[in-house]
Amino acid sequence: MYLIVIAWAYVTLMMAVAEATSPNGTVLGAIITFVLYGLLPMGILVYILGTPSRKRAIKAREAAEQTAYDEAQRQGAADTAQAEAIAHPSVTSPLPDAGSEAPAAPAVGAAVAVRKEP
C-alpha cells in the first residue's frame, strides 16, 4: 500500500513541478495540481486500503475489553461466593436460590397463568 502512495506522490510532485516551471504555468496551479491530483486521491486510497487493519484493531480491542470484563465478573462471583460462605456457613452452594427462598420474579421464559374469561 505504501509503495503505491509513494509512487503516486512522486508522480504528482513531478506534475506540480512541471506546472510551476512551464512558461504558461503558475505556482498556484502547481499547488492545486498537487492537492487535487495527489493528496486527495492518496487520502481516499489510504482510507480504503486501511479499513481491514482498522477493523482488526477494533475487534482486538473489543476482545481485550470482553476478556477483562469476563475476568472481573469471574473474580466478583468468586468474591461473592466466598463472602456468602463466610456469612452463611450452612449454605455451601453459591446458587441464588440455595437458601430455599422464593424467587423475587418469575423465571425468564416461564409461562404466566392466565384465567379464561367466562
Score class of each variant (00 low, 15 high):
Gln66Trp: 08
Thr80His: 11
Thr21Tyr: 01
Ala110Arg: 00
Leu28Thr: 02
Asp79Cys: 07
Glu65Met: 05
Leu40Ser: 02
Pro106Tyr: 01
Lys116Met: 09
Arg115Asn: 15
Thr33Gly: 03
Ala85Glu: 06
Leu36Ile: 07
Ser53Thr: 05
Val114Ser: 08
Lys116Ile: 15
Leu28Asp: 04
Pro106Glu: 09
Ala102Asp: 05
Arg56Glu: 12
Ala72Arg: 12
Pro41Tyr: 00
Pro94Tyr: 10
Ala30Arg: 02
Val27Ile: 10
Asp79Ile: 02
Thr26Leu: 09
Tyr10Ile: 05
Leu40Gln: 08
Thr80Ala: 06
Met1Ile: 04
Pro96Thr: 04
His88Ser: 13
Glu84Tyr: 11
Gly50Ser: 10
Thr12Tyr: 01
Arg56Pro: 10
Pro23Ser: 01
Asn24Cys: 13
Ala102His: 05
His88Met: 13
Ile48Met: 08
Gly25Lys: 03
Ser22Met: 09
Ile86Val: 02
Ala78Pro: 02
Gly76Phe: 01
Ile32Cys: 10
Val91Phe: 06
Ser22Thr: 03
Val112Thr: 09
Met15Tyr: 12
Leu28Ala: 04
Pro106Cys: 01
Pro52Lys: 04
Val35His: 06
Arg56Gln: 06
Ser90Leu: 15
Ala68Asp: 08
Val27Pro: 12
Ala18Glu: 14
Arg74Trp: 04
Arg74Thr: 08
Ile6Cys: 13
Gly25Val: 00
Ile48Gln: 03
Pro23Phe: 03
Ala30Thr: 07
Glu19Ser: 14
Gly38Thr: 07
Val35Thr: 02
Tyr47Leu: 01
Arg115Thr: 15
Ala9Ser: 08
Arg115Cys: 13
Thr92Val: 07
Ile31Trp: 05
Val108Trp: 10
Val108Tyr: 14
Ile6Asn: 14
Gly38Lys: 00
Ala72Pro: 10
His88Val: 11
Ala30Met: 11
Pro52Leu: 05
Met15Arg: 14
Ser22Gln: 01
Ala87Asp: 08
Ala87Thr: 15
Val11Pro: 11
Ala64Tyr: 08
Pro118Ile: 11
Val27Gly: 13
Val91Glu: 07
Glu101Phe: 12
Ala9Glu: 11
Thr51Leu: 11
Glu84Ile: 14
Tyr2Pro: 15
Ala9Asn: 02
Ser93Met: 12
Gly109Leu: 06
Met42Pro: 00
Arg56Thr: 12
Ser90Ile: 14
Val17Ala: 00
Asp79Gly: 03
Ile4Thr: 13
Tyr47Val: 06
Lys55Trp: 07
Gly109His: 10
Gly25Asp: 03
Gly50Arg: 00
Ser22Tyr: 03
Met15Gln: 15
Gln82Asp: 13
Glu71Cys: 07
Gly43Lys: 05
Pro106Trp: 03
Val108Leu: 10
Arg115Asp: 15
Ile48Gly: 06
Ala16Arg: 04
Gln82Arg: 14
Pro94Glu: 02
Gly25Met: 06
Ala104Asn: 11
Trp8Gln: 05
Gly109Ile: 07
Ile58His: 00
Ala105Lys: 15
Phe34Leu: 12
Met42Ser: 06
Gln73Pro: 13
Pro52Arg: 05
Pro89Asp: 02
Glu65Leu: 06
Ala78Phe: 07
Thr21His: 07
Glu101Gln: 07
Gly38Val: 01
Asn24Pro: 15
Gln66Tyr: 09
Thr51Cys: 00
